[in-house]
Write a protein that binds this DNA or RNA. Structure first.
Length: 463
RNA sequence: UCCUCGAUAGCUCAGUGGUAGAGCAAUCGGCUGUUAACCGAUCGGUCGCAAGUUCGAAUCUUGCUCGGGGAGCCA
């Protein structure tokens, strides 16, 4: 007798086999002489139907305890199901109840719940159909990320979670300290004396692993990071988290073209992988969440992304009849409405914009020969907006120094980053991808807090 | 942080100044190879919190808290 996953039993279980099933009860339908119980173990969307006849020992008492949410083990024969709805079902001969679930207080019903309510019971929501599908797809995405880069011989590098400097200037950071906030040591000018702190200086949770990834790329050529990052921004939106996972490949001897090609190939690969591994879950999203997810996946996999420069995009936005709330003018950053218009209405597919004005992009992006633009690229996805941001990095020491100075940053803070240009510098490029946004894009889930098991956001840290 | 909408039974919601409602869930019973099962009955409320207006407030006013959507910041 073997315990198999319900996914395996439903797909390939042989009629007549004696099997064991373990899982949690999703619903019970009681009759006079017998009962049906749906059991789910998380291995797939579908439940296995278990038929419990009165011949089961202590039937009346046991049936009462088999309520929604209870954890159980059933043993019996797998039989062909005489009714529609399932190929096979389990005819229970014996059962064991590991943990009961009081139906008067168990908050999950068979009926649909709002995602807002499910966020309040973050410890139980993984047991629902939708969140179950989300986390299976999330897992498949993560596996696809590693498989894609490993097949290309990229090195997975572990960049630090605690970091000393706001290297990218990517927003507010969380402090990491062991100082007692009730008794902060002060310097003579009244500021907090971080020389007495754990690291001897101020430290933060990392907002990006990019600069460290560049260090590793200068030794291993092609690397990628895949790990958590942190932003202390007071962002209250359906697209932002305080703790999220980021993927950042970095390639030595690579320019912006190569960077774009890799990003496009990457997205196609991940979508294809998930469509192959999680089709039932994707079909569930199509049916219950967003009826465009399958078409979107197909669109990503089989069409080339649109590619144009920022300057060309500005021309398109200026020519359209569409009225925008924010002005369009060369030199201004694009607003959400502009990005969505381009990706959703003009091109109707992922759209890569390149060569942004130098003033609106980060210091490390490579200055183009025109002196006005940098070798940056953003991939705009319909409905999600910016899903990937990348660039060719500035490899010329003198240009990088003047860019850092121009942004009012302190050269000393970047001494090791500048050393990379001092010793064996090479053209290199990379991009960053918010993992949760990828999962959102793939599943059609509208709120980013529902695609990560334990969301961290302002006032949100309970589970 | 800004704009906007909201908070009433375990859940989803109705109720615009005069005795607190429905569907679902739960409980009990019935019936049926059921599958969002079905039928009947029962149970279920500090109407987010605080103050104010009024003879009387779930309802009107103010403040606060929390949540949704949008924006900014960004991934």
């Amino acid at each position: 007798m073997v315990t198999n996953s319900i996914e395996k039993i439903l797909a390939t279980g042989e009629v007549g086999a004696t099997i064991t099933v373990k899982g949690w009860i999703r619903s019970k339908r009681e009759s006079k002489g017998f009962a049906f119980v749906d059991v789910n173990d998380g291995s797939c969307m579908a439940n296995i139907q278990v038929v419990i006849a009165q011949t089961v020992p202590d039937y009346a008492n046991q049936i009462k305890r088999l309520s929604t949410g209870a954890s159980v083990e059933f043993q019996g024969n797998l039989v062909e199901s005489p009714a529609k709805g399932q190929r096979v079902e389990l005819q229970a001969a014996a059962l064991e109840i590991f943990g009961e679930s009081d139906p008067e207080t168990y908050p999950l019903q068979k009926k649909r719940h709002s995602f807002e309510f499910l966020r309040e019971i973050g410890h139980l929501r993984p047991r629902t159909n939708t969140l179950g599908a989300v986390f299976r797809v999330r897992n498949a995405c993560a596996a696809a990320v590693h498989q894609f880069f490993q097949e290309k011989s990229f090195l997975w590098v572990h960049t630090p979670i605690i970091s000393a400097s706001d290297c990218e200037g990517a927003g507010e950071m969380f402090n990491v300290t062991t100082l007692n906030p009730d008794k902060l040591p002060r310097t003579s000018d009244g500021k907090v004396d971080y020389s007495q702190d754990f690291f001897g200086r101020q430290a933060f949770l990392s907002v990006s692993g990019q600069l460290e990834a560049e260090i590793m790329a200068m030794a291993f050529s092609n690397v990628y990071t895949f790990g958590p990052t942190f932003r202390a921004e007071n962002s209250n939106t359906s697209r932002h988290l305080a703790e999220f996972w980021m993927i950042e490949p970095e390639m030595a001897f690579c320019n912006l073209q190569g960077d774009m090609n890799l990003a496009e190939e990457f997205l196609k690969y991940v979508f294809k992988y998930v469509m192959e591994k999680c089709l039932p879950d994707m079909e569930f999203f199509q049916q219950r969440i967003d009826d465009s997810v399958l078409a979107t996946a197909e669109n990503i996999i089989s069409n080339d992304f649109a590619r144009l420069t920022y300057t060309e995009a500005i021309e398109i936005l200026k020519k359209t009849d569409r009225q925008f709330e924010y002005p369009v003018s060369w030199g201004l950053d694009l607003q959400s409405e502009h990005e969505r218009y381009l990706a959703e209405e003009v091109f109707k597919k992922p759209t890569i914009l390149t060569d942004y004005p130098v003033e609106i992009k980060a210091f490390y992006m490579r200055l183009n020969d025109d002196g006005k633009t940098v070798a940056a690229m953003d991939i705009l996805a319909p409905k999600i907006g910016e899903i990937i941001g990348g660039s060719q990095r500035e490899e010329r020491l003198d240009v990088l120094e003047s860019r850092i100075a121009a942004q009012g940053l302190n050269l000393q803070d970047y001494w090791w980053y500048l050393d990379l240009r001092r010793y064996g510098t090479v053209p290199h490029a990379g991009f960053g991808l918010g993992f949760e946004r990828l999962v959102q894009f793939m599943t059609g889930m509208t709120n980013i807090r529902d695609v990560i098991p334990f969301p961290r956001a302002p006032l949100t840290v309970e589970f």
